[in-house]
Design a protein around this nucleic acid. Structure first.
Length: 948
RNA sequence: GCCGGAGUGGCGUAAUGGUAGCCGCGCACGACUCAAAAUCGUGUCUCGCAAGAGGUGUGAGUUCAAGUCUCACCUCCGGCACCA
């Protein structure tokens, strides 16, 4: 009986790998490189948890596979150790954050080593190491010298608990991301990084990288690129104008007012001309005093006041428009002025409703009939129509006409005469066509819809402008219908869920459906212009161009992305290497003096006035100006913890360099990162920030590629049992140590890969893990069956299964379908178990495929069956394309798509052979009677179609 | 509201448009055992004694054939959210 002593095996191999430096990335090297990366952890006091391991194991598998494929792999690890939890712990305990960091990283390192990850530990880095942050500071100074790091007084998010300024990204639902406490807006002088200067490239270059689509989408949403126009509206009686940013220049005829943000400067410039300046002033005061939470409060009603005495001129038609100030317009986006188009913007609609402003529809949706599209060269006739949508409130069914001569179902409908009332026209059509007369008006379903189609009976193309009117039946009384109507169609009542295209043939149907249950709201989509003078009939896209040009507007691109607030009034971060001299201004610390070291302090608490604790250390703060040698002060703000992680992957390529952040040749060889896996939560912060820094360094010609990561993938969260997030406060965090102790690292790794699709969130379930442990125990037992006796070599079928498994595991690892790769290995192992003997060769192939998942046990067995060199030096197996399929295949026999059994045939069997075989099989043959048609897909299925 | 993603046994999940439920957990029965655990074997979607019928969130559609493709809807998860 062979036992599985995981502790002994895992310890043994971990120490051998460490001694032999088995996973060292060589440099220089003639081999092709592969750089695989995972996010370096923040070494919190809680230690590693099982969530970390999912990403680590996945990239470990890929790294090990790449090595077996002959690559020189760089798979590094380090510590992102600056940050608030450590600092808060220091405040509480008085222990120096550096010491806390040291303790925590020691724990993390040990935990990671116990899991057998193939990191190159010689390249370990730590962002809090002065030898590292020297270069973080150096890069900051390059940004400063290029004008991309600047100081500005900005309203920042201020956390009342942490007493710290937060970036927009660190505020979640108006609350501090870390402590969940309330935040408010405060004006403060802050260091900023001009990431917006790179917005266009950060957006566009996403085309050139291989990121998961959802990652790209999320970044694009965050960057928020939108193309629009800036259009000047003259202020009546002055030589000044208001610049409006809009993405909907096509709706310019529908503008019925302008709105400016409360911060807008014309409020001061034209104060004397505003008749109700007092009222306006009070409104603005109120708006500016709101904090973030109040301003974004849900369902907040729109408010605003007019600027009496000021009028703007619509440049398109010369119309005079009132000007309002309202807090729903943001000063920080666009120009801080919008044109109000209530018919085509929901917010404007809401505002207009509230303040009784006119609503003018200028764009209507357009549909081209799929069944009868317009034909070329036919004359075009325009018509005005109405659809009557009649519901029976008793059963929710809808009144329809089933046409006798056409395969149509329609609503009651007809033309509308000029000047005829819509509702009356709809009533008339319903009565004439169906006989129902007792109808209660529910609503007119929004504005018109336009449709283009070919009217065959008149041989002409039509453009229809249709309104829909909705009624409820008050009773089921029905008048008689004319014979003509009776001959034309039957009356049918259809349930709501059957009101769908193409059963109902109206091209406009989707428009009515979208308005079915909604109150009258504005139409915000693109369509065709009406009520727009000479632009009538143009589609939105064309109209945007032509109208913008006509009013001499400028095409502009705007972004939601804002510059990055880079200051923190804290201790545990990289000091910003700037000296402030009253005479000479802001100066960079001379390069020779880098790094600016963090001084020792007694108290890590921020000061009461919100300054960094560093500001209390006069011996550190007071320096001589590097230029005039006069008295000057150091900058006391430190960097956010996103700083160190914005370039750490570059440092791994050359971690000990003390002349540069990394040597050119090492960078050239190792970067860009080939494959970066990490959490979705970093998509809009770390991932975007590091792309920005990297592009900046690329512009300075300091890195060889414009994008840092060729490929980015993401793992799903591991949740606690019950599907909730793991968190310390809930006490449901699973620590890997006990699992490694009880069942071993290999089992834990295997289970995390097997538990479900890698990219999906999944709940931890310790009971299921036992299956992975059992599998490994059975794999160990297989060694007894291994024979090197050639005459006992196993069957052809097994050879095919092995070949299929090589292909499956190889492909699945590449696409991160680890769960199915493990499943394939289990299937092969089950097959092995059934046999008396397994050839050494076959078992070796199996071990090689298994080794990236469970490296310790694979090494052990590899050695046991007589190999001297490590399994990680063995070549990755290659499958033989010709040996993937059996000669005999199972063909499924079905009658009318219903499966009735299988027959086993040669893979190239003809249809006739298969039919014969199927007929002869009594279980299947009894089903095969008359059939009109046979569908035979070689090697897969044969289907008899009876045509019933 | 907008943008992503997902809905399949008791559970985690698997299925190039071609026998739905592979692999694993759990459960049941059997073997081993004085007994239990472990291990091994057999079975395990639902209804039905059976023959058979039904079945992948709902409703339509395309197809010889739909978990898979199309349209509409419902539910859940993630992200964004007055960005004009």
């Amino acid at each position: 009986m062979i036992s599985y002593d995981h502790k002994k095996i895992e310890k043994k191999w971990q120490s051998i790998w460490e001694k032999t430096k088995a996973f060292k990335a060589r440099f220089p090297s003639r081999k092709k490189k592969f750089y695989s990366l995972i996010e370096f952890p923040y070494p919190s006091g809680d230690g590693l948890h099982v969530g970390h391991i999912r990403s680590n194991t996945a990239m470990d598998i890929i790294s090990r596979k790449r090595r077996a494929e002959g690559y020189n792999v760089l798979y590094p690890m380090g510590w992102d150790a600056f940050g608030l939890p450590t600092e808060n712990y220091a405040i509480k305990t008085g222990i120096h954050p550096a010491l806390v960091t040291k303790q925590n990283t020691d724990i993390f390192r040990k935990q990671l080593k116990n899991l057998g990850f193939s990191f190159d530990w010689d390249r370990e880095i730590n962002t809090t190491d002065p030898k590292y942050y020297k270069w973080t500071q150096w890069i900051f100074l390059q940004l400063f010298k290029k004008g991309l790091a600047y100081k500005a007084t900005v309203p920042i998010n201020w956390c009342l608990n942490c007493k710290i300024g937060l970036a927009n990204e660190e505020v979640v639902d108006g609350k501090c991301e870390r402590c969940n406490g309330p935040t408010e807006k405060r004006d403060k002088e802050q260091w900023m990084l001009a990431i917006t200067k790179y917005a266009e490239r950060l957006d566009k270059d996403l085309d050139s990288v291989d990121y998961l689509p959802r990652i790209k989408t999320q970044q694009r949403n965050w960057i928020g690129r939108s193309v629009g126009a800036e259009i000047d509206f003259k202020i009546k009686g002055t030589d000044q104008s208001l610049k409006v940013f809009t993405t909907r220049a096509d709706t310019l005829y529908g503008a019925t007012y302008l709105v400016i943000a409360p911060e807008h400067k014309i409020l001061n410039t034209f104060k004397s001309r505003i008749d109700n300046a007092l009222e306006v002033g009070m409104y603005v005061q109120l708006a500016l005093n709101q904090n973030e939470i109040e301003r974004v409060a849900e369902n907040k009603e729109k408010t605003g006041v007019p600027l009496k005495g000021l009028k703007a001129i619509n440049p398109l038609n010369g119309e005079e428009l009132p000007i309002y100030v309202a807090d729903y317009v943001l000063s920080t986006y666009g120009t801080g002025v919008i044109m109000g188009v209530p018919a085509h913007d929901e917010r404007d609609y809401e505002f207009a409703q509230k303040l009784n402003l006119p609503i003018r529809e200028v764009v209507i949706p357009n549909r081209i009939d799929k069944n009868n599209p317009p034909r070329k060269g036919k004359k075009i006739v325009e018509r005005k129509n109405v659809h009557a949508i009649v519901r029976n409130p008793k059963n929710g069914k809808v009144l329809c006409l089933k046409w006798k001569k056409q395969p149509w179902i329609t609503f009651p409908m007809g033309g509308v005469e000029d000047g005829e009332d819509l509702v009356e026209a709809a009533r008339r059509e319903a009565r004439e066509e169906t006989g129902y007369t007792n109808l209660k008006l529910v609503k007119v379903m929004g504005g018109q819809a336009r449709a283009e189609y070919f009217a065959a009976h008149k041989n002409e193309n039509r453009i229809s402008y249709t309104n829909a009117v909705m009624f409820d039946l008050t009773d089921e009384f029905q008048e008689g219908r004319s014979q003509k109507e009776k001959d034309s169609y039957d009356i049918v009542w259809l349930p709501k869920n059957e009101i769908a295209y193409p059963k109902i043939v109206h091209a406009e149907l989707d428009i009515w459906l979208s308005r079915w249950d909604k109150e009258n709201v504005s139409f915000v989509g693109d369509g065709v212009l009406i009520n727009s003078g000479k632009f009538d009939g143009l589609d939105s896209e064309k109209a945007r161009r032509e109208i913008t040009e006509f009013v001499k507007g400028k095409r502009v691109i705007k972004f939601k992305l804002r510059d990055w607030v880079f200051s923190r009034q804290r201790y545990w971060g990289e000091p910003i290497p700037i000296i402030n001299c009253k005479k000479c201004g802001l100066l960079p610390v001379p390069l020779k003096q880098l790094p600016v070291l963090l001084p020792d302090v007694k108290n890590y608490k921020p000061t009461d006035n919100g300054e960094s604790p560093l500001s209390n250390i006069s011996s550190w703060v007071n320096v001589n100006c590097p230029k005039c040698k006069g008295k000057a002060k150091r900058e006391t703000d430190v960097m956010p913890n996103w700083a160190g992680s914005s370039w750490y992957f570059l440092r791994y390529t050359d971690p000990a360099n003390n002349k540069e952040f990394a040597g050119k040749t090492a960078l050239k060889y190792f970067t860009p990162v080939d494959w970066y896996n990490g959490g979705m939560e970093h998509t809009t912060l770390h991932l975007l920030y590091s792309r920005f820094w990297h592009k900046f360094l690329y512009d300075l010609k300091l890195v060889p590629a414009s994008e840092p990561y060729k490929k980015r993938t993401s793992h799903g969260l591991i949740l606690a049992e019950g599907g909730v997030k793991m968190s310390k406060s809930k006490g449901n965090v699973i620590n890997p140590d006990t699992i490694v102790e009880n069942v071993g690292a290999d089992t834990l790794r295997l289970y995390e890969m097997f538990m479900g699709p890698f990219d999906q969130a999944i709940a931890w379930n310790e009971d299921s893990m036992i299956g992975c442990r059992r599998f490994l125990e059975r794999v160990i037992k297989l060694q007894d069956q291994v024979t090197s006796n050639k005459s006992q070599v196993t069957s052809k079928e097994l050879g095919i299964l092995i070949n299929q498994t090589i292909k499956k595991v190889t492909d699945d690892i590449e696409s991160m379908r680890f769960n199915t790769a493990v499943s394939a290995l289990m299937i092969l192992s089950n097959e092995f178990e059934k046999r008396e003997y397994i050839s050494k060769n076959e078992f070796e192939t199996f071990l090689k495929l298994l080794s990236p998942f469970t490296p310790h046990i694979s090494e052990e067995l590899w050695q046991k069956i007589g190999n001297k060199r490590s399994v990680h030096l063995a070549k990755w197996p290659i499958f033989d394309k010709k040996k993937l399929l059996n000669e005999k295949v199972n063909v499924s026999v079905s009658i009318d798509g219903k499966s009735r059994g299988i027959v086993s045939v040669k893979d190239n069997a003809t249809e006739k052979e298969v039919i014969d075989l199927a007929r002869r099989n009594p279980e299947i043959g009894k089903w095969i009677k008359e059939h009109k048609k046979v569908i035979y897909v070689k090697g897969k299925i044969i289907n008899f179609v009876t045509g019933k």
